[in-house]
Write a protein that binds this DNA or RNA. Structure first.
Lengths: 332, 332
DNA sequence: TTGAAAGCGCTACCAG
DNA sequence: CTGGTAGCGCTTTCAA
């Protein structure tokens, strides 16, 4: 079923059918009607591959994410999709599960599909891929790409103030034995968060103790990490988690241990996903504006007007959110 | 950048380049090396649209879902993706947000992309779309498509026993005032769940009271629905939720009201998503085997061997899971 | 307002 | 083992 059959049935040329389907130039309304009728009757569906190939342009943007299952990423995705739709574009998403090979495969795929633009929101970014993407000649934007990549569009999360604020607060209410729960993403901003936590804690009082544990970026991973952290007799009074999902996992483990939050242990998350308000106790966390990130990404790939930006850096500042999962250290 | 440029640089024909890129037939290893070198140097990325167009086949399956944000759907998606990858296929997913127009648009898109197979896992299915999909000549499978659609592949959830089990249990521990929390999906199995709940409750004791409330399929929606349900002086002792996410939302609202779960009110979910174990209290729910569903879908679209099934129905049986969010009615 | 025809980049078949 | 080439289905000049 193709243009030609439709053309034949409507007794016009394929060019004309194409015209009415794309309402490009003016077509006499009687012919237009005939064509539309033929399309209906034949249940014709234009082949998008042929269209893209012939037209040379795509109207679809690609987004690659580390873990769509985590609502943090999903919220960004939703914002991108919504704005892209409003600009007449589709979006196709790829999930890497933090696996570098999967990232590499997804990048190849996106380039091969000749996307109108490509965004990577991953923490396992690799500089060879950054280069490959840059050379692909389509608008590209990265999220938290580190390394000395010269003129790429990059969205940088300013973790430091957020983390410092958390540590400062916990320290001020008497905590001196900390735990940090991270996840297994070899590179990336998570380790940045971890090192900032460690640095900051030690800065506040060099004698403070900190131990870390890591597992997968899931509820279950948070739980496992908490288990690891508290095994072997270590008993932190405050547990800082790399994100909200893992914090909720940790909450569950502590409950099972008979530890009350925040009376016995304080717990903090990061991201401020919706769940952080709905879990019990509601999490003290750090808000990261996902909508803003999604909109920036979309604007880099499909600017409303003018050429896409090149080599710009967008800085995102987080915001401390105090809720119920934290309080004074026991005995203070 | 295309095949021809690569061919020129490697001093071979485009046919040969194509051969090494698809390692189809045998190519002398020295020429292969030359070609690969050229590919590298030119940073050549094959145009997937051209490939699909020329080859006539796609190696990508399409999945359309109502609400990817709900982990229930996401778990199904993940299973499909994993199995599809292992069979050398990609998957592209579309999210409808329960909007019929979006569903229609996604169906057009998937057909236009000439997917190797299409699955719809939505509750807003419409029979015209079912027909359109069937006529598209690609393997298709539906999830919970109701209506008298003759020979489609369909995965049917056998809600009834699950719901009955929940009601039976709640009734047996003394509950006589029920609430049902659903969501705004106009058609579909959710209403089926609701009507089964109503029927079953009334069957157990005709004098039992039941009221219902509905909102969006989110944490926030569950909370709002709970608020609605308890407003106006109605005080059910048991709240049956259409799924776990909404149940967690309800949990939050009850907590805010100072209502203890399960001492004052019992709450049940549906689906048994991971979160149902991690919230507090852990939810009594009904397990639906998402992996099984995902695997069936994948097997319908990309059978490991033989032709795809036609007109088959797959029935999924749920399983009651008793946890902490339910107990005897107050005063029993 | 419409038609004819030249590609878009690739695969696959037929020769050699 | 390799090259030539006819499409795949559509868009887009260029003419009419």
């Amino acid at each position: 079923m193709n243009l030609e059959e439709v053309a034949r049935r409507a007794k016009v040329s394929t060019a004309t059918v194409s015209r009415v389907l794309n309402n490009a130039t003016v077509v006499k309304s009687s012919t237009r009607a005939r064509v539309l009728k033929a399309v209906q009757e034949l249940k014709y569906h234009p082949n998008l591959h042929a269209r893209t190939l012939a037209g040379g342009k795509s109207r679809t943007v690609g987004v690659i994410m580390s873990n769509l299952e985590n609502p943090y990423f999903f919220d960004i995705y939703k914002t991108i999709e919504s704005r892209a739709h409003s600009r007449g574009h589709e979006v196709v998403v790829a999930n890497t599960d933090y696996r570098p090979e999967q990232l590499a495969a997804s990048v190849q795929l996106m380039i091969g599909r000749r996307m109108a633009g490509i965004a990577t929101v991953v923490s396992e970014m690799d500089s060879a891929l950054v280069a490959e993407l840059q050379e692909s000649q389509v608008p590209v934007v990265f999220y938290d790409a580190r390394g000395p990549n010269p003129n790429i569009n990059n969205i940088r999360l300013n973790y430091k103030p957020g983390v410092e604020r958390v540590v400062e607060y916990l320290h001020s209410v008497g905590h001196r034995r900390f735990g940090f729960i991270g996840h297994h993403s070899v590179l990336g901003p998570l380790n940045e968060r971890q090192s900032v936590v460690l640095e900051t804690v030690l800065r506040y009082s060099p004698s403070t103790e900190v131990r870390t544990a890591a597992d997968s970026d899931t509820l279950e991973g948070g739980r496992q990490a908490a288990r690891t952290l508290f095994s072997g007799g270590y008993a932190p009074t405050a547990v800082i988690c790399v994100n909200d999902i893992m914090a909720v996992g940790a909450l569950r483990e502590l409950r099972e241990h008979g530890l009350r939050v925040p009376q016995d242990v304080s717990v903090t998350g990061f991201d401020n996903v919706k769940l952080s308000e709905f879990c019990s106790p509601a999490l003290t966390t750090v808000h990261i504006p996902r909508e803003r990130i999604g909109n920036i990404i979309c604007d880099c790939l499909i600017p409303e007007s003018g050429p896409p930006p090149v080599g710009r850096e967008f800085v995102i500042d987080p915001e401390f959110v105090l809720r119920e999962s934290t309080g004074p250290a026991p005995g203070v």
